[in-house]
């Protein structure tokens, strides 16, 4: 990618971040709450897209990493009374290590087998949450006590029951994730990853370690998903087995495909549309998950590039 194109992408990301920051001053209460959730889910989807969009690996088990972050942070707070920043850092680390282990095994498979293997590992994760109910409280889950709803950062304390505080923390996480990905993808290592996606055989022949490149991205992806899960658990104070379920593996896929796999901002766009749509539909019908099925099929049949992927193809070829 040319330097000019990179600069354009950087400006675009900064502009989007500026808009997101100012939204907190105009949105009504409930939308602030929704936007907070959306930004965290967008971080999750960004992590997913790092894998699907830039190395071409479709995981059906990313709920595993989201739930790992959620539980690693929440349980250390709940059982051991850790401070929130320490718990968060620990959770991101734990998710990265888990991703390293799972990736080292799962990346030995390709294509369909990779999808099924990741699906199976996530299923084991969901069952683990239920099996160790003595710690996780199973299906019922745990609510973090009021005393744990305050983050002590040394210089300042943050009250997580405050909606705008939560918004800005989620915003900060999203901004950090976008910038990390931007820099990573712009770097030499990032270009190896996309080379793997575009032609694995040729990349290998050129002397690059394809497995290492894949594993590196898998770990980054897992850590990012874990960070999203950790923030979700700590900000909203609830840990439950629902977060480890199959649906949480499908949602980032849906967000990414809709927004455009392999576009930096695609997952964010996908989340904005899908989460908003699901929330509105749930007021009209109990069968609102129908929309997940319909959107998936429509996308895969007629719109495989997603929103930003199409925008890139037609109008803005420089989009990352």
């Amino acid at each position: 990618m040319s330097r000019a194109a990179f600069a354009r992408n950087a400006w675009l990301v900064l502009a989007v971040l500026a808009v997101l920051f100012s939204l907190q001053f105009v949105l009504p209460d409930y939308q602030v709450l929704m936007a907070t959730r959306m930004m965290l889910l967008a971080v999750f989807a960004l992590g997913f897209n790092a894998l699907l969009g830039y190395v071409g690996l479709l995981s059906l088990g990313h709920a595993l990493f989201f739930a790992c972050g959620l539980y690693a942070s929440g349980l250390t707070v709940y059982h051991f009374g850790w401070g929130l920043p320490a718990a968060f850092v620990f959770a991101v680390g734990a998710s990265a290590v888990l991703a390293l282990l799972i990736g080292a095994v799962a990346l030995r498979t390709i294509r369909v087998s990779f999808m099924i293997v990741t699906l199976m590992f996530a299923q084991v994760g969901a069952l683990t949450v239920l099996y160790f109910a003595a710690w996780t409280n199973g299906q019922e889950g745990l609510s973090l006590p009021a005393s744990a709803r305050v983050a002590d950062l040394g210089v300042a304390t943050l009250d997580l029951t405050d909606a705008l505080t939560r918004y800005n923390i989620a915003y900060g996480l999203l901004a950090a994730s976008l910038l990390i990905l931007l820099v990573y993808l712009g770097s030499a290592r990032g270009r190896i990853a996309t080379a793997v996606r575009d032609n694995e055989g040729r990349t290998e022949m050129l002397g690059f370690n394809v497995f290492a490149a894949k594993l590196e991205m898998f770990v980054l992806s897992g850590a990012m998903s874990g960070a999203a899960g950790a923030a979700y658990g700590l900000l909203f104070g609830y840990l439950g087995a629902t977060f480890a379920s199959f649906q949480y593996s499908i949602e980032p896929l849906l967000f990414t495909l809709l927004g455009g796999a392999g576009t930096l901002l695609g997952p964010l766009v996908g989340v904005l549309f899908m989460v908003g749509l699901i929330d509105k539909l749930s007021e009209l019908t109990t069968a609102y998950l129908l929309v997940i099925g319909v959107v998936l099929i429509v996308l895969i049949l007629w719109f495989p590039k997603g929103i930003l992927g199409t925008v890139r193809e037609r109008w803005l070829p420089w989009l990352m």
Binding site: D29, L33, Q139, G141, F236, Y238, T242
Partner: peptide
């Protein structure tokens, strides 16, 4: 609203009722 007998959605609905 439907909470799907799901603790996660139950708690999110409380937020929705309170803020929206």
């Amino acid at each position: 609203e439907d909470d799907g007998t799901d603790p996660k959605r139950g708690s999110e609905l409380i937020e929705k009722f309170a803020t929206e």
